[in-house]
């Protein structure tokens, strides 16, 4: 379901791009702004919304999970605080989580779109969002430990371009925190210690192993993005891309759809619970897809996403770069 921009609940500040009908864009000039300036404004707004407002599908899943925990337990206490945090972040227009994560953009564009200038605009928007506090100073030189404070650097932000046949521009953004990234996992089957062979039964075993190893360290209840097959690099990237699917959106492949449901049910019998406190809900959903593999490899990748699930997306006009519709 795609909603109109104006339907989205708005936070008290920096709402210009979210209220296109009120003509409050560019307070000082009150005139048309250049497409480049508009692009930066739209991108900053996408970053702000991603960092501060939990997507509706995740919000529903979290509230459902809260209802299932037994009251007066550490687990229900944790879920209460999560729900309070969701409200507070939206109201104050401040980050849901202080770890504003790896900034991962997927840009879907029509043929003929110029990528290089748009990369520069993304960089400006990221720098501005860091100054505004929507992003933490979160990019560190892996060799020197230096933090330039801009969120720009080797590989940061992560930007992927995909050509599509539509006229509009689609900008998807994920802010993936370090805690959940650290508990994400990759397996090469057969995995003898787990008795996991090269079939879906083996895939199931390694996914469950990853969840047990993660315990509460990935800020559960989390969501699993899984890729069966592919090489090590694309397998993990594709696992992560599954997290752009809405929760509850089942795989079109019957066997994978069944596995998604079964994994979620089984994980929720492990007793790890919210934040690893013990309890009913260990994961909110599991989203699986597959890639072909070479005969010698059978890679399975599990990308763990925390409950503070930051992903959003919007369609933009290709010429004016004005925000049209939110995707989640």
């Amino acid at each position: 379901m795609v909603k109109k921009v104006t339907k989205k609940k708005v936070a008290p500040k920096k709402v210009a791009a979210k209220k296109p009908t009120k003509k409050v864009v560019a307070k000082k000039t009150a005139k048309k702004i250049s497409p480049d300036a508009q692009a930066i404004e739209s991108l900053v707004e996408i970053i702000r919304v991603t960092s501060t407002i939990i997507p509706n599908d995740v919000d529903r899943a979290i509230r459902k999970a809260r209802g299932e925990e037994v009251s007066n337990t550490s687990a229900s206490y944790a879920m209460d605080i999560m729900c309070d945090n969701i409200e507070l972040a939206k109201t104050k227009s401040q980050p849901l989580c202080q770890d504003t994560g790896t900034v991962i953009f997927y840009i879907y564009h029509p043929p003929g779109f110029h990528q290089t200038p748009f990369i520069k605009l993304i960089h400006k928007a990221v720098t501005q969002s860091t100054k505004l506090g929507y992003l933490r100073q979160n990019s560190v030189d892996s060799l020197t430990g230096e933090n330039a404070g801009t969120n720009l650097g080797a590989g940061h932000p992560s930007i992927h371009f995909v050509e599509h046949e539509k006229k509009e521009l689609v900008v998807k953004l994920m802010l993936k925190g370090g805690g959940c990234e650290n508990v994400s996992a990759q397996y090469s089957l057969p995995e003898t210690t787990l008795g996991a062979g090269r079939d879906l039964a083996g895939v199931r075993k390694v996914i469950l192993d990853a969840v047990v190893k993660a315990q509460g360290k990935g800020c559960g209840p989390g969501v699993l993005g899984v890729c069966v097959g592919g090489d090590r690099a694309d397998s993990h990237a594709h696992a992560k891309r599954q997290l752009f699917r809405k929760l509850g959106e089942r795989s079109k492949i019957k066997e994978l759809a069944e596995l998604e449901v079964e994994i979620t049910e089984t994980c929720n019998k492990l007793g790890i619970g919210p934040m690893g406190f013990g309890g009913k809900t260990t994961i909110l959903d599991c989203l699986i897809d597959h890639r072909n593999r070479v005969p010698a490899s059978f890679i399975v990748s599990v990308s763990y996403m925390c409950w503070a699930f930051r992903r959003q997306g919007a369609t933009l006009d290709t010429k004016s770069f004005k925000l049209n519709k939110w995707l989640y």
């Binding site: 605080i81 945090n85 104050k92 849901l96």
Partner: peptide, 13 residues
Amino acid sequence: FHAIGGAAQVLAE
């Protein structure tokens, strides 16, 4: 002491 991960706003308050 375990604080609730991801609850950056509740804790900042």
